[in-house]
């Protein structure tokens, strides 16, 4: 009675195992590709609001994707969302620290600190950020203005308030998930959100209501 398999039988089993592993890996890659495609636009916008710089925002998204793909690709797909949020927040904080150090060196050397959000000469920031998707130019212009106003108001918030607001309001994260992504307590999340909302209301509500009234007329 044979105690084990050898020869062609074993080779077939090994081949079947290899094929199954390879198929699993391919499925996993496809799932990861699908996941990243589903989050890349929002991640870019989140980073763009934080940095006000297209290249820096792309670098942040690239870095976050690389870290997720290299370290956590084998985790359950359900875990990718919270992990990606956490990594993105971490990369944004790193960017802020590096930027602060860079600006201190620039000032020390007698230069002017970099102003994030500064547009290149001759470049229209609205043109660079928003593609024309609406058939009506008037509506499109109004939407672009609303976006620019919102971007500017969000950018003026302290980083934690800004990111807590975006994670809670836009990404729809719970207080607990936001706290985990930001690496802070749930109480801080509530406080940051409340302060961000108050500041945004004060800055935008009148402007947006005025626009709505103009639209009605």
């Amino acid at each position: 009675m044979p105690t084990g398999q050898s020869g062609p039988g074993l080779a077939r089993i090994e081949h079947t195992g290899y094929t199954a592993c390879r198929r699993t890996a391919l499925d996993n890659s496809a799932a990861l590709d699908h996941f990243l495609a589903s989050v890349e636009r929002r991640a870019y916008r989140l980073a763009l609001i934080a940095t006000s710089n297209h290249e820096d925002a792309l670098d942040i998204v690239q870095d976050a994707m690389l870290r997720l793909a290299r370290r956590y690709a084998d985790r359950d797909a359900e875990e990718w969302g919270p992990l990606f949020q956490r990594i993105t927040q971490s990369v944004i904080r790193d960017w802020y620290r590096r930027n602060a150090v860079r600006n201190r060196f620039r000032q020390w050397l007698g230069g002017k600190p970099a102003q994030d959000g500064e547009a290149e000469p001759g470049e229209d920031p609205l043109e660079a950020r928003v593609a024309s998707a609406d058939p009506e130019p008037g509506v499109q212009l109004q939407q672009q203005q609303a976006m620019a106003q919102l971007d500017a108001a969000l950018h003026r918030l302290p980083l934690r308030q800004q990111q807590v607001f975006l994670l809670r309001q836009w990404e729809g994260l719970s207080v607990r998930d936001t706290a985990q992504a930001m690496g802070c307590g749930e109480g801080s999340v509530k406080t940051h959100f409340s302060r961000a909302l108050k500041a945004l209301r004060a800055e935008l509500q009148d402007y947006w209501q005025m626009n709505e009234q103009q639209e009605i007329r």
């Binding site: 890659s29 990861l32 590709d33 990243l36 495609a37 890349e40 636009r41 929002r42 870019y44 916008r45 297209h54 792309l58 998204v61 690239q62 994707m65 690389l66 997720l68 793909a69 290299r70 690709a73 660079a128 950020r129 928003v130 593609a131 998707a133 939407q143 609303a146 976006m147 919102l150 971007d151 975006l166 309001q169 836009w170």
Partner: peptide, 28 residues
Amino acid sequence: TLERSAQTLDDATLRELRQARYTALEAR
């Protein structure tokens, strides 16, 4: 407004995001 801003990204940015995704998958 935020949702609209993410859905109306220009083609160049979308291409760069796609490239970033491919780079991440390939690096893995």
